[in-house]
């Protein structure tokens, strides 16, 4: 058997093993099935398992449900269109002016109904701050590795909120852009924006972080705090209504990833368990 043929057979075995791992079988059971090439297979299947598990995540149930709702609504809409197409089309097609008008209207309706061709939702500028507004955004810091720091200055450039009913992102500019997390530990918090948001169910808040600078208590040295995406994302549904004030506390925490013997690395992340909305003094579920 020539080398090319051997490689082709190996590719088929590797492919079969990947199918088996995808359907839940263990890597070891694949290797047992092909002892002759187990030595070659093992590192490749390990790399495959590593890349699969690194990117694995379960989409947020409420995001999936909302997307399914839009899909089902579009199905109902498309059925309606199908039922009427034959009848009116044959009547108007012989009258150019009516046909042109209907065609333009159809395009407008389609654009309004389906939205733009963007795969993501549009981001539109949100309202200006207002002292008596129905929404208050606060920043706090759960106590973790923050005790290592004299200060952790987080500079926030923008905050985006996803209004799930309208299907759009609102972007607001914080009134206070720099927050020292060391000064808002535990129950303390700082208000960074207040204003009137449109009534809606909001499901995601994303904070755009421009920079993070920390100063260590022990040495006075400045350290990098990692935030590779420059974004902090929280998926926590809350409602904003007229006549009530919704205060949303966004908890940002510093974690240490090292042993603490001079090789600590720090990472910034939102703390979902400590974040949430309060309406008229009552925490929403």
């Amino acid at each position: 058997m020539n080398k090319e043929k051997t490689m082709e057979n190996f590719d088929k075995i590797l492919d079969e093993c990947i199918d088996r791992v995808n359907s839940g079988e263990s890597l070891q059971s694949c290797l047992t099935s092909y002892p002759a090439c187990a030595e070659q297979l093992k590192p490749l299947l390990s790399a495959a398992a590593k890349s699969k598990s690194a990117f694995a995540f379960t989409p947020q149930p409420h995001a999936k449900t909302a997307a399914r709702g839009r899909f089902d609504a579009a199905r109902v809409g498309s059925r309606g269109n199908t039922q009427y197409t034959g009848g009116w089309l044959s009547r108007v097609v012989g009258k150019p002016l009516i046909f042109a008008g209907v065609a333009v209207a159809a395009v407008v309706v389609a654009v309004l109904y389906f939205g733009s061709n963007q795969p993501y939702y549009p981001i539109i500028p949100g309202p200006e701050p207002h002292a008596e507004g129905n929404f208050v955004l606060l920043i706090s810091d759960d106590i973790n590795a923050i005790a290592d720091f004299a200060s952790v200055d987080v500079t926030i450039s923008a905050v985006q909120l996803f209004a799930s009913g309208e299907g759009k992102w609102l972007e607001i500019e914080p009134e206070i852009k720099q927050v020292d997390l060391a000064s808002v530990q535990g129950d303390d918090s700082i208000q960074i924006w207040r204003g009137d948001l449109p009534e809606d169910e909001y499901t995601k808040i994303v904070i755009d972080v421009e920079s993070v600078r920390g100063v260590l208590k022990a040495t006075g040295e400045s350290v990098d705090i990692k935030l590779p995406s420059s974004k902090l994302q929280l998926h926590l549904p809350f409602r904003v209504s007229a006549g009530t004030v919704t205060s949303f506390t966004y908890d940002i925490t510093v974690f240490s990833t090292g042993s603490g013997h001079g090789n600590s690395k720090y990472i910034l992340k939102p703390q979902a368990g400590e974040s949430g909305a309060v309406v008229a003094g009552r925490k929403q579920d």
Binding site: F57, K226, L227, P228, S229, K231, L232, Q233, L234, H235, I267, K269, P270, A272
Partner: peptide, 8 residues
């Protein structure tokens, strides 16, 4: 790489 996506 959006680390927050994994962390959450």
């Amino acid at each position: 790489v959006d680390i927050e996506s994994v962390i959450l």
